[in-house]
Design a binder for these strands. Structure first.
Lengths: 199, 199
DNA sequence: AACAAAATAGCACGAACGTTCGTGCTATTT
DNA sequence: AAATAGCACGAACGTTCGTGCTATTTTGTT
């Protein structure tokens, strides 16, 4: 039987790293505390990455692997249903404590804006990828006359994304899940309006 | 002549502290770097506050003094105009680089969520105060039949606030001011809708 | 069973962190 | 003129950080 042990320690390290980073932030993720929480030595952890920046990038990639399934949708749904499916999965990802300290990408965006470097570049690439999927889904719904075309897809994406971000931030600060209900209400009403009057 | 020296160094320190904190975050605001950028000694700065937590709280208070004028509005305006005035000033505050690294309260919210303590408590109090003003302005506009009452004021406040937060985050990450135009578009359209059909 | 390779541990380093202490300056008060 | 208080300073503390080195252990292949 093939033992999966060889690759699994690095994976195991990164899963803990994502948890810690979601609470302490990417900067607060220290190799020392990471090693201790894994009952490993500092150098044992460090050797897997070679630098803290590489650890941070690998942590972002691991978080992306956890998050990215949200972006998929069953192909048998209509375009607008796929879009709604995407938003609902995104909300579930924020609401269920997938990451104990909230969306890693959002907290990382806050700490890394204004600090150029490869970690920031990598983060921006991942964030752009998620927003790109959102915009594309909106455009497809517009192309099939399921959403109005009076608004640019980018405008709609900004507003929907804003509700997701804001719900995450308010929830993390207050630990009150009502903000997800409020965000769902906002999203639902906007869909009602944007589906309403087709030319 | 009364010497303003005594209180002014502390004020001077805190003004620099707000600038640094807006870029590096409240945790990244180190007493060492703060002292160096002021050509002071570490202990000279430290003595004014006694602990880093007290420095962080004083920094938040200083940022609030800078921000809070946004919340005022000329009393001769109508309720809905006062609300629009508030949002426009808030956007200007985010857009003009009042703080070089973006809204201090937002980045602080991101780093402090999930880390209980007096700094987090103090931050939440300030944030709540701003949101409270926003909600009260909406309620007053509803009471005077200038905004529809089919939505709770808290729901409207969440959506408007989300646009502000999201514009700030996207701008700080991309340095692209188009996001403020998008946010203004979103706010304008929502007012059009919420003013539209009164009972 | 022996051995090469990879993974982990151990140790030391320089730097930066928050904090404390003793000590001068410089006003203000007695 | 003497005593006092407030500021700011430099030095040092113990700790933690990221990062190199060198052993030692574990693993996979013959």
């Amino acid at each position: 039987m093939e033992t999966p042990k060889k690759q699994s320690t690095r994976t195991h390290i990164l899963e803990k790293a994502v948890q810690i980073a979601s609470i302490e932030g990417l900067q607060g993720l220290s190799i020392n505390s990471l090693a201790q929480s894994l009952s490993m030595s500092k150098s044992g952890v460090f050797a897997h990455f070679g630098s803290k920046e590489e650890l941070q990038i690998a942590t972002l990639d691991t978080a992306w692997i956890i998050f990215s399934p949200c972006l998929t949708a069953p192909p048998d749904l209509s375009a607008v249903q796929q879009l709604q499916h995407l938003l609902e999965q995104w909300l579930n990802y924020l609401e269920s404590d997938t990451f104990p300290g909230g969306c890693v990408f959002m907290s990382a965006s806050s700490e890394l804006d204004g600090k150029p470097g490869i970690v920031r570049d990598h983060l921006m690439q991942l964030v752009s990828r998620a927003v790109f999927v959102l915009i594309e889904r909106i455009k497809k719904a517009q192309d099939t006359q399921q959403l109005v075309t009076s608004l640019p897809a980018e405008q709609m994406a900004f507003e929907l994304h804003a509700f997701l971000l804001s719900a995450n931030l308010s929830y993390q600060l207050s630990r009150d899940k009502q903000y997800f209900a409020i965000a769902r209400n906002a999203i639902f009403r906007h869909f009602e309006e944007w589906q309403g009057l087709n030319p």
